[in-house]
Write a protein that binds this DNA or RNA. Structure first.
Lengths: 227, 227
DNA sequence: GCAAAAGTGTTACCGGTACACCCATGT
DNA sequence: ACATGGGTGTACCGGTAACACTTTTGC
């Protein structure tokens, strides 16, 4: 490896992960009390520096593995944040990613060990640096994805009712979709399979549980919901 | 500035600019024969390393100024490209940007001096590294922008006919929009102003020239065209 | 008059929205 | 029987697409 670019300076480069989950009918983000100076103890996204021979995405997956014990989950790059003064003491460029994680899959012990806590996206605490902005960008990108692809598989249990999916979309877009129309729209996409089972906890009649078709891969529908 | 992160390695970080213009009824990208090894002479995007105290966007604007003599143009970050082997000889992470430039504004001498050439997006030559992929990502993002905001101001002369705008959209989306419906849609947005002048080069009747309203800022329309 | 491009009008259809209504069941 | 949430049906409205039609003017 020839030292071709020696006259140009190198820069610390990191990734930060916006980890979304869905629980208690809310869309939530995983935050940690920062464990190094400066601003130790303030809430922040979990991140890490990018290794010498590591892609950004692999760095993000490594962070996910260390954070929630999973790495085979949906992950998408959002944007680079590069204001020279975004960290007060040293120059770091950080690339934000967002990840989608079903609430029942993550390693709770691992999260607890680092004092991670889940915050609803509409009620975030004070965050270090530009992490608030990262979350907002990530949410924008996630909404775009959810508007063109049914995102239930990543965030709901394997089997779920249409109502649960409806509530998920309500939480993502912070509005209330008409249940009748939502049901029709979603079923018309042809990617869900009705199971024989019913969910009976919340109603007397019971609601059919659905799951994604086995071979379902992310599609690009015309428009599931308006953004 | 305390050396906090000394145990983590720094990485070369660059920006690459996908510069779009519109001429001869085609959407084109500016490419250069690479002027340093490796692969000197192959076609590539214009890029540059990010300085110590420089944001990614400022680095991209600096590249634009060096390349086309303009920096006050539309610029948007696309994505980071970070495969450790994307450059054969040394590790460089590059953030792709795209820019929109009216064909009559750029500094032709400056472009010619570096042997820059414009290529239609549907007929690109062989490109170095992952630059083809960068252009495709940039085009995707640009199409998204054009679907929600009228992009004529950035790419057409100050005054233009509806037909020209129609042709621009045809070129961006590589399809043909119905002229009648396109006209109605575009005028209904209420952002164009009819001028008293007519363009008579291509027709006997002559077509009215329009321009963007003085106070027009990028809006987020529901949907101008389907993506 | 006719060709050519600009510009207007018409119609059919589709998808989103609102909302009324029926269904199944536990109490 | 009735309350409750699940699920279906329908009617309206606006946007989109396709395409016919009118206008203007140079030749």
């Amino acid at each position: 490896m020839a030292p071709l670019y020696t006259e140009y300076s190198k820069i610390h480069i990191a990734v930060d992960c916006v980890i979304f989950t869905y629980s208690d009918e809310k869309l939530k983000v995983l935050l940690y009390p920062r464990n190094i100076e400066p601003r130790r103890g303030d809430w922040s996204l979990m991140g890490g520096f990018v290794g010498d021979r590591e892609s950004l995405e692999n760095a993000a997956r490594r962070v996910l593995m260390q954070t929630v014990g999973l790495s085979d989950i949906f992950l998408e790059q959002v944007s680079g944040f590069s204001n020279p003064d975004r960290e007060p003491d040293e120059r770091v460029i950080s690339i934000a990613f967002y990840a989608l994680m079903s609430n029942d899959r993550h390693n709770r012990e691992l999260v607890a060990k680092h004092n991670g806590e889940w915050f609803p996206v509409d009620n975030l605490p004070a965050l270090i640096f530009d992490h608030k902005e990262m979350i907002e960008s990530a949410l924008g990108r996630f909404r775009y994805k959810a508007s063109r692809d049914l995102v239930g598989r990543e965030l709901l249990p394997e089997k779920f009712t249409i109502k649960q999916l409806n509530n998920l979309y309500d939480a993502i877009f912070q509005r209330s979709f008409d249940t009748s129309n939502f049901r029709k729209k979603v079923l018309s996409l042809g990617v869900l399979l009705q199971t024989p089972d019913k969910e009976t906890g919340s109603s007397k009649k019971g609601a059919y549980l659905y799951k994604f078709k086995r071979d379902y891969a992310a599609k690009d529908f015309d428009r599931i919901v308006k953004v």
